[in-house]
């Protein structure tokens, strides 16, 4: 079952084409790795998939059972915002229909369980910006899971996170994937995708190309992606 598909898409800003002729699809149960050097268009593609940015050409289709969970880079969020951990997780429950009303108790309980799942329930009253990079990322994972996603989209979730915290985040991601949620992971480091990714997209020279992990992890492959 296709969750998300881009067909003959031209992606970029008015007057600036970043990626051309993009054809890709995410199926239920996929674990997709999206790899590319800085400036290759990863963020632009991601924002297009999120629906934040319009396509210049082509089409973006979403499946009938499509619910998106989004984990941004924690470094991109305003560090001075006086939000508690619980308030951040609670944002995952927002829907256009319930923005002006109270969140149902059942949804709140579910969000609470998501916070417990990422082992951050004991910090629910703490200020979000007082947490470490790894803790912030776990809280953002809980927020994404609170939306009960069928596709989890993560933008460099290990940026600014130490090795131990990275391991926790990746294990959590594996669990979520095993439960049937498709994953699209944007990363600089192809090693994170080893033994995980079912397909790989590489952004290179304004195109999105399918690649095998074996090719990508070879010295030539790494050099080609990260140059």
């Amino acid at each position: 079952m296709t969750l998300l598909a881009l067909q003959q898409a031209c992606i970029g800003y008015p007057g600036v084409v970043v990626l051309d002729d993009v054809n890709l699809a995410v199926e239920a149960g996929d674990y997709v790795g999206l790899v590319g050097a800085n400036g290759s268009g990863k963020t632009t593609l991601l924002r297009t998939l999120l629906g934040v940015q319009s396509l210049l050409e082509g089409s973006l289709q979403r499946g009938s059972d499509f619910r998106l969970g989004y984990v941004p880079q924690q470094m991109n969020l305003d560090s001075r915002f006086p939000l508690s951990v619980w308030e951040v997780v609670h944002m995952g429950l927002f829907r256009p229909g319930n923005l002006l009303t109270r969140t149902p108790p059942a949804d709140q309980a579910f969000a609470e369980s998501c916070l417990e799942r990422v082992q951050m329930a004991h910090r629910r009253q703490a200020l979000f910006h007082s947490l470490s990079g790894g803790q912030k990322q776990r809280v953002l994972m809980a927020r994404a899971l609170a939306a009960k996603p069928t596709l989890l989209l993560l933008d460099e979730p290990l940026a600014g996170v130490d090795a131990k915290a990275s391991e926790i985040v990746m294990e959590l991601l594996d669990e979520v994937h095993q439960e049937g949620c498709a994953v699209l992971l944007v990363t600089h480091n192809p090693l994170h995708l080893r033994d995980r990714a079912t397909s790989l997209w590489v952004l290179r020279h304004g195109k999105v190309e399918a690649a095998s992990l074996q090719d990508l992890l070879s010295p030539e492959g790494l050099a080609a992606v990260l140059q």
Binding site: R47, L50, G51, V52, L68, Y70, P72, L77, D78, F81, L83, M91, F94, R95, P96, L99, L100, R143, A147
Partner: peptide, 23 residues
């Protein structure tokens, strides 16, 4: 007071707001 949640969400994380379909 009524619109504080979407306004704060848009200010904190505009990409998530767009993802959730907040106008």
């Amino acid at each position: 007071l009524a619109a504080r949640r979407p306004i704060l969400l848009i200010a904190f994380d505009p990409d998530l707001a767009a993802t959730l379909g907040v106008p």
